[in-house]
Design a protein around this nucleic acid. Structure first.
Lengths: 233, 233
DNA sequence: ATTATCTATAGATCTATAGATAATGC
DNA sequence: ATTATCTATAGATCTATAGATAATGC
C-alpha cells in the first residue's frame, strides 16, 4: 500500500517540500530529534534524494533561516509617509510573535546552528543588528508621535536591546517554566507582548498611558501570578 | 605510557570527578558535542565505569543542576536584620552572573534536558519560581530601603520576570550576536548587569539615581553602540 | 542530455550492558 | 563481601555517498 506524504502540496518542488516539512518537524519535535532520515521518511522520499537537494541538515536550516529573516525584516518596516500610532505598536508585536511561533525551533539551541555553519553565524549576526536598529527606529517613531517620551540615545539602545532579549527569550521561558499540562500555543506565546509593554510603561506619555495599559491587559500571562504565588503548606 | 587525567584532584571520588569534568566539557564544547565516551576519556576511566556511577548523561546533567540550584538559591538570599543597600544590588547581580558563567551550558538547549527528564523539568520549574520570588523580594527590599520607587504588585511581578528573562538570555545573545573574534569571558557576560539596571532606571528614587547610573556605566556592553551603528557604505 | 530519484551500504558514532577482574573494608 | 573498575560488544542510529534507474525537457 502506498502512503502519501501529508506535508506540502504534491505539485510543490521537492526542494521546497523538504524545507517546509523540515520546519514542521523541527518545530514539533525539536531539531535535535529530527534526522535527515526522519525528514525523508515524513516526505515519503529516499534519504538519497534529500541529499541530492541539500548537502546536509545545516544547509536546510540555513535555508529556513533565510525565509525567517525575510519575514521579520518585512514585519519591522516603518510605515511610509505617516506617523506611528498606538495600533502600530501592537501590530508590530503581534507580527513578530507570529513569526517567532512559525519558526520557533530556530531560537532553541541557535548557538549550535551558528557553530556548525559560519555563514549562518555571519547572517544571523547581521540579522540581529538589523532588528535592533529597526526596534530603535520604531521606538524613535513612537517618540516622534508623542506616544513615548524622548530618551537619550544610550537609553534608547539599551531599551531596544531589552526588547529584543525579552522577545527572543519568551518562548524558552514558557517552555521551561510551564507545567507539562499547559499546552503551548501561539496565543500563549503572545503573552510575551505583555512583558514588552512593561518595559515601556515608565516612558509612556500620560495621555496614552491608560489606553496602552488597557490593551496590555489583553496579554496578561495566565501564569504570571501563579509563578509568584508563595508555596503553600 | 600512562596519561593521567587533567581534571579533578586524584583523591576526589570518581562520581564527583565525573560531575566536575562533565561540567567543564559541557561548558567548553557544548553538551551536544560531548558524549559519555568523551567524558570517560577525559577522565581516563572506562565508559563502563562511568555507567556504574550514572545511569546516563541525563542523570549527570540532573546532578549538575542540583549544584547550580543550591548555588543560586544561596546567592539570592536577603540579608538578615538590615535594610538593602545599593551595593547589594550589584553584589546580587555579580553573584548571579558568576553562577551563570560557571554553569553556562545549562541554559543552552535547556528545553532538551527538561524534555528528556521529567524530574528535572519539575525541579527546574520550582527553581524558576523560587528565583522569581527572590527577585521580587529583592526589588521589594530595595523599595523598602528607599532606593527604588514602590510599584503595584503586578508591575513588580512583571518587572521581576523581565529581570529573569534578561539575565537568562544574555549569554545566548552574546554568543549569537558577537563576531567570532570576540572572546567570550566572564567579564563580557557581566555586561548583562548593564541591561538589568536599565530595566530599573525609571524606578530609581532621585537621590540614588546618579550613583547607580555611574556604577551602571562600569558594565556598558562594549558592543552596544556598534550593534546599533548603521551599516557603512 | 539533464535532472530527479531510488537502492544499498560504508563508516562512524553512541548508549548501555554483561561478565570478568581488581581493590577495599570489615 | 562489597564496591569499583575494565574489556568487549550488541544494537541502534545517523550521515553521506556511489551507482543504477527513472522521468523530463529539448
Amino acid at each position: 500500500m502506498r502512503v502519501f506524504a501529508v506535508t506540502g502540496p504534491r505539485n510543490m518542488k521537492t526542494r521546497d517540500r523538504i524545507i517546509l516539512t523540515s520546519l514542521e518537524l523541527f518545530n514539533e519535535q525539536g531539531e535535535r530529534n529530527v534526522s535527515t532520515n526522519h525528514i525523508a521518511a515524513a516526505l515519503g522520499i529516499s534519504p538519497g534524494n534529500l541529499y541530492y537537494h541539500f548537502r546536509n541538515k545545516t544547509d536546510i536550516i540555513h535555508e529556513i533561516f533565510r525565509h525567517y529573516q525575510l519575514l521579520v525584516d518585512h514585519y519591522l518596516q516603518l510605515p511610509e509617509g505617516r506617523a506611528l500610532q498606538v495600533d502600530d505598536e501592537f501590530d508590530y508585536l503581534e507580527a513578530v510573535f507570529d513569526g517567532l511561533w512559525s519558526y520557533r525551533f530556530l531560537h532553541r539551541d541557535l548557538e549550535h546552528y551558528l557553530e556548525s555553519d559560519p555563514r549562518l553565524k555571519a547572517d544571523y549576526r547581521a540579522f540581529t543588528q538589523r532588528c535592533l536598529r529597526a526596534i530603535c527606529r520604531i521606538l524613535d517613531g513612537l517618540a516622534d508621535a508623542g506616544i513615548l517620551m524622548r530618551m537619550s540615545q544610550e537609553q534608547l539602545e539599551s531599551m531596544s536591546l531589552n526588547v529584543w532579549l525579552v522577545v527572543t527569550s519568551w518562548m524558552a521561558f514558557l517552555k521551561t517554566s510551564q507545567a507539562e499540562a499547559d499546552v503551548l500555543c501561539k496565543e500563549r506565546l503572545k503573552e510575551g507582548i505583555y512583558q514588552v509593554i512593561t518595559l515601556q510603561l515608565p516612558y509612556l506619555q500620560p495621555e496614552y498611558r491608560d489606553i496602552i495599559l488597557a490593551r496590555q491587559q489583553a496579554y496578561l500571562p495566565a501564569s504570571l501570578h501563579s509563578m509568584f504565588a508563595h508555596a503553600r503548606g
